[in-house]
Structure formats: structure tokens, C-alpha cells
Measured scan of single mutants.
Amino acid sequence: MSIQHFRVALIPFFAAFCLPVFAHPETLVKVKDAEDQLGARVGYIELDLNSGKILESFRPEERFPMMSTFKVLLCGAVLSRVDAGQEQLGRRIHYSQNDLVEYSPVTEKHLTDGMTVRELCSAAITMSDNTAANLLLTTIGGPKELTAFLHNMGDHVTRLDRWEPELNEAIPNDERDTTMPAAMATTLRKLLTGELLTLASRQQLIDWMEADKVAGPLLRSALPAGWFIADKSGAGERGSRGIIAALGPDGKPSRIVVIYTTGSQATMDERNRQIAEIGASLIKHW
């Protein structure tokens, strides 16, 4: 067993022997301040990774656009098919120029040779490549099948209805392509620590998230040296922004954090800054 596999296998073990965790309302004060600064709703939840206990939450059962955070769930569904012998990570998928959609920095470079399922998941999570996500959605049967996968996990809230990039439209009061912070946090925890996926697939999923290259201005910008984070960000229309993450000190994750916002007129930089400040408060009061 590799060191990384050992780390993920012992996530519940280490967490069980940690000192009790206590909620700190100071972080919620910052979440509410972010709402004021952005002029928009902000949803927040913080779960203990081992027990699933909610440590703090704000608007945990209000719907927010998922945006690209759905790509972690998508690759979880792909990995479940791999575990069941219905898919192979090494299978190569070929596609054409007509398949390319807006923001496809990886797939646009491989029109000639195609990409493997493993490479597509890596591109979808680490670079948020939209064509990679659409190609992977095709392998599982489309958005409705991802929703069905989530329902089978016990998540009857999260739903995907459309493809990239239309799913980022974020129309107010439109339930399409949305989740709730509580539902997303619980589902992410199941994917990373539950028995739904094999140990190898859980490790692969967290490795992809740990290698995320496009979430630097968010929670990662607030992390002290030595902290662990595996995350996936999302951005959408109407001032929408979000991030889902597993993080913790001492090089291992111990909490799940989900943050979503929508309806702001603020710039992307300002949305990023507010999420980073929430992260800084979380870490300060850990």
C-alpha cells in the first residue's frame, strides 16, 4: 500500500482519535458579512469528516447552483462504474471539434489522439474542462443518470439537468442544476469515506481534487503551510461562485467545507476574496 493510499485508508482512524471539535460562531459572522459585502445569498456548511456531524452552517438547506462543483460527483459516478466493471479508466475516447464547448483548455489539445477516461476526469476536476465533463456525462448516460446515481446514494436534493455550459445559467428560483450545502457536503463525505467506492477509487477521487489547479484564489489562499486540501470550485452566471473541499491540518483532511453564493453584482475577484476570507476565519478558529 502506498503512503497516499495509507493516508486515505486511515482518515477515519486518525479522526477518531482527534480531540473533540467545537464550532466557532466567528466564522458564521464572516459568512454573514460576506453576504453584506456581496449583496447576495451565501450558503455555508462545515462537517466533521469522521462523524458527519454538522459543526457550523448557514442557509444549509437553500438551493444554490452547483456550477462546476458537480464534476466531482460526476467522476465519482464514473469511478463507481469502474468498480462495477462497467468502465475502464484506460479506455480512450475520441471526439471532434464539434464536441468542444466553451472553456476546454485540455480537451482542445487532444482532438487528434483523444483522451482516456482517467485523463478526462483529471481534466474535468483539476482544470474544470467543460468538454471533458460533457464527454464523461455521455459515458454514464447524461445528466439524468448522474441525478439517479445521487438518488441511489441517498441524495434526493442534488440534481443535474443540463450539460456544460448551460448548467451554469443560475436563474433565480430555478431548481435545475442545483444542490443544497448540506446535501453536497453529505454526498461528498460519502464519496470520500464511505463504502460506495473502493479504496482505490476513493484515493483516485481525492487525488484529482488535491491536484486542483484553478481554485488557488479561494480556500487555498488562506491555508497555512502543512495543511491538506482537496477541492473543486465552480463559477456561473449572475454572480455565482462555489467551492467544495476536504481539508485539515497535519497533512490530512478532517472536515468537509461547502460554500456557495449566487445573485451578486460583485466582480469575480471580490467573490473570490470573500470566500478566501471565510476560509481564513475557519482556519483561525479551527
Results as ranks from 00 to 15, higher is better:
residue 59 R to S: 14
residue 128 S to C: 00
residue 40 A to S: 09
residue 207 D to H: 09
residue 211 A to P: 13
residue 101 V to N: 06
residue 119 E to Q: 10
residue 120 L to Q: 03
residue 85 G to W: 09
residue 208 W to H: 07
residue 96 S to I: 14
residue 35 E to W: 02
residue 253 P to A: 07
residue 109 K to R: 05
residue 123 A to W: 08
residue 281 S to H: 10
residue 57 S to C: 04
residue 92 R to G: 11
residue 216 G to Q: 05
residue 132 A to G: 15
residue 67 M to Y: 08
residue 282 L to D: 01
residue 190 K to P: 08
residue 66 M to F: 13
residue 179 T to V: 02
residue 183 A to E: 11
residue 73 L to E: 03
residue 26 E to Y: 12
residue 119 E to H: 10
residue 219 L to V: 05
residue 199 L to K: 12
residue 267 T to N: 09
residue 73 L to G: 12
residue 254 S to T: 09
residue 113 D to T: 06
residue 26 E to Q: 15
residue 270 E to D: 05
residue 150 L to F: 15
residue 26 E to A: 07
residue 157 V to G: 15
residue 219 L to G: 08
residue 52 G to H: 09
residue 120 L to E: 01
residue 70 F to V: 12
residue 80 S to G: 14
residue 110 H to S: 14
residue 71 K to I: 00
residue 227 W to P: 00
residue 26 E to S: 11
residue 222 A to I: 04
residue 135 L to I: 06
residue 49 L to W: 11
residue 94 H to Y: 04
residue 143 P to N: 10
residue 229 I to Y: 10
residue 126 T to C: 06
residue 275 I to S: 01
residue 230 A to T: 08
residue 227 W to A: 02
residue 209 M to C: 13
residue 261 T to K: 08
residue 243 I to P: 00
residue 246 A to Y: 06
residue 34 A to M: 05
residue 201 S to E: 11
residue 187 T to P: 01
residue 263 G to P: 07
residue 223 L to T: 12
residue 44 Y to K: 00
residue 248 G to W: 10
residue 180 M to G: 03
residue 138 T to R: 12
residue 54 I to A: 08
residue 279 G to L: 04
residue 39 G to F: 09
residue 179 T to L: 01
residue 137 L to T: 05
residue 150 L to R: 01
residue 107 T to N: 11
residue 240 S to E: 15
residue 65 P to L: 08
residue 186 T to F: 13
residue 105 P to T: 06
residue 261 T to I: 10
residue 51 S to I: 10
residue 73 L to D: 05
residue 189 R to K: 05
residue 251 G to F: 12
residue 129 D to Y: 00
residue 252 K to G: 09
residue 149 F to A: 07
residue 255 R to F: 15
residue 266 A to E: 07
residue 126 T to H: 12
residue 172 P to G: 07
residue 118 R to T: 09
residue 173 N to G: 06
residue 196 L to A: 06
residue 34 A to K: 02
residue 168 N to S: 12
residue 34 A to V: 06
residue 42 V to F: 01
residue 214 V to Y: 06
residue 179 T to W: 00
residue 193 T to A: 06
residue 275 I to D: 00
residue 81 R to Y: 08
residue 132 A to T: 15
residue 138 T to W: 11
residue 267 T to P: 05
residue 177 D to T: 01
residue 120 L to I: 07
residue 228 F to N: 15
residue 60 P to T: 10
residue 89 L to A: 10
residue 64 F to W: 06
residue 244 I to Q: 01
residue 228 F to W: 07
residue 68 S to P: 00
residue 100 L to Q: 14
residue 90 G to A: 14
residue 230 A to C: 07
residue 221 S to C: 06
residue 222 A to N: 03
residue 263 G to H: 08
residue 181 P to D: 00
residue 178 T to P: 00
residue 211 A to G: 14
residue 266 A to Y: 10
residue 81 R to A: 09
residue 186 T to P: 11
residue 44 Y to M: 12
residue 134 N to C: 05
residue 147 T to K: 04
residue 245 A to P: 00
residue 80 S to N: 15
residue 251 G to A: 10
residue 245 A to F: 09
residue 133 A to G: 04
residue 66 M to N: 05
residue 190 K to R: 12
residue 227 W to S: 03
residue 249 P to H: 08
residue 219 L to N: 05
residue 114 G to Y: 12
residue 276 A to V: 13
residue 198 T to D: 03
residue 231 D to W: 06
residue 189 R to F: 09
residue 119 E to R: 09
residue 139 T to S: 09
residue 270 E to T: 11
residue 161 D to H: 03
residue 220 R to Y: 10
residue 38 L to A: 11
residue 241 R to W: 08
residue 80 S to T: 08
residue 57 S to R: 07
residue 149 F to C: 06
residue 86 Q to P: 08
residue 190 K to F: 02
residue 35 E to F: 14
residue 231 D to V: 13
residue 232 K to E: 01
residue 255 R to P: 00
residue 194 G to N: 12
residue 234 G to F: 01
residue 176 R to Q: 05
residue 238 R to F: 13
residue 97 Q to V: 08
residue 128 S to Q: 00
residue 40 A to H: 09
residue 119 E to Y: 13
residue 246 A to Q: 11
residue 181 P to Q: 00
residue 141 G to Q: 05
residue 181 P to R: 00
residue 86 Q to Y: 15
residue 116 T to D: 12
residue 79 L to R: 01
residue 193 T to I: 03
residue 271 R to S: 09
residue 41 R to C: 09
residue 109 K to H: 08
residue 176 R to P: 09
residue 224 P to I: 06
residue 195 E to Y: 15
residue 219 L to P: 06
residue 107 T to S: 08
residue 250 D to V: 04
residue 172 P to L: 11
residue 89 L to Y: 13
residue 64 F to M: 11
residue 194 G to P: 10
residue 95 Y to H: 13
residue 166 E to W: 13
residue 97 Q to C: 04
residue 135 L to D: 01
residue 189 R to M: 03
residue 143 P to E: 10
residue 226 G to T: 10
residue 95 Y to Q: 14
residue 187 T to E: 09
residue 222 A to S: 04
residue 181 P to F: 00
residue 198 T to G: 06
residue 26 E to I: 14
residue 177 D to A: 02
residue 25 P to R: 06
residue 167 L to E: 11
residue 53 K to G: 14
residue 286 W to T: 07
residue 189 R to Q: 15
residue 137 L to R: 01
residue 169 E to L: 04
residue 142 G to L: 03
residue 141 G to H: 07
residue 127 M to L: 09
residue 184 M to E: 01
residue 53 K to P: 11
residue 75 C to Q: 01
residue 39 G to P: 05
residue 230 A to E: 01
residue 53 K to T: 07
residue 236 G to V: 12
residue 258 V to F: 02
residue 230 A to N: 01
residue 279 G to K: 01
residue 229 I to L: 12
residue 43 G to Y: 01
residue 142 G to Y: 08
residue 41 R to Q: 02
residue 267 T to V: 03
residue 79 L to C: 11
residue 244 I to R: 00
residue 109 K to V: 04
residue 38 L to H: 10
residue 279 G to M: 11
residue 280 A to S: 14
residue 182 A to N: 06
residue 272 N to Q: 13
residue 65 P to K: 04
residue 61 E to H: 07
residue 181 P to I: 03
residue 165 P to Q: 04
residue 202 R to A: 08
residue 28 L to E: 05
residue 107 T to D: 01
residue 216 G to T: 10
residue 190 K to V: 11
residue 233 S to Y: 11
residue 44 Y to F: 11
residue 41 R to P: 09
residue 102 E to Q: 06
residue 241 R to M: 09
residue 191 L to W: 03
residue 28 L to N: 12
residue 70 F to Q: 08
residue 133 A to S: 02
residue 43 G to D: 00
residue 279 G to A: 05
residue 252 K to E: 12
residue 266 A to H: 08
residue 193 T to H: 08
residue 208 W to I: 13
residue 215 A to V: 12
residue 282 L to C: 03
residue 80 S to K: 15
residue 107 T to E: 01
residue 166 E to I: 10
residue 69 T to C: 13
residue 274 Q to K: 04
residue 119 E to A: 11
residue 87 E to C: 10
residue 77 A to M: 15
residue 160 L to Y: 13
residue 103 Y to M: 08
residue 204 Q to W: 03
residue 35 E to P: 01
residue 281 S to I: 05
residue 68 S to R: 00
residue 278 I to Y: 01
residue 154 G to R: 09
residue 35 E to G: 10
residue 87 E to S: 10
residue 145 E to T: 12
residue 149 F to Q: 09
residue 50 N to L: 08
residue 176 R to N: 12
residue 25 P to T: 09
residue 122 S to W: 09
residue 175 E to V: 05
residue 236 G to I: 06
residue 189 R to E: 06
residue 27 T to P: 12
residue 253 P to W: 04
residue 203 Q to F: 15
residue 86 Q to W: 09
residue 56 E to F: 07
residue 283 I to N: 01
residue 192 L to H: 05
residue 78 V to L: 14
residue 75 C to A: 07
residue 138 T to N: 14
residue 146 L to Q: 03
residue 225 A to T: 03
residue 57 S to I: 04
residue 55 L to I: 03
residue 98 N to P: 10
residue 63 R to N: 12
residue 112 T to P: 14
residue 201 S to V: 13
residue 267 T to W: 05
residue 186 T to W: 03
residue 69 T to N: 03
residue 46 E to T: 14
residue 267 T to L: 04
residue 45 I to H: 11
residue 161 D to A: 05
residue 25 P to Q: 11
residue 113 D to E: 07
residue 164 E to R: 00
residue 92 R to D: 14
residue 155 D to F: 01
residue 52 G to W: 04
residue 76 G to D: 01
residue 273 R to H: 03
residue 112 T to Q: 04
residue 68 S to F: 00
residue 58 F to N: 14
residue 256 I to T: 03
residue 103 Y to G: 04
residue 101 V to F: 03
residue 251 G to W: 10
residue 31 V to W: 08
residue 148 A to P: 09
residue 95 Y to N: 08
residue 224 P to G: 10
residue 174 D to G: 13
residue 229 I to T: 10
residue 214 V to R: 11
residue 212 D to E: 08
residue 112 T to K: 14
residue 57 S to T: 05
residue 71 K to T: 00
residue 205 L to E: 14
residue 198 T to Y: 12
residue 41 R to H: 11
residue 267 T to F: 09
residue 275 I to K: 00
residue 111 L to W: 05
residue 128 S to L: 00
residue 249 P to Y: 10
residue 284 K to S: 09
residue 221 S to D: 13
residue 118 R to I: 13
residue 238 R to T: 04
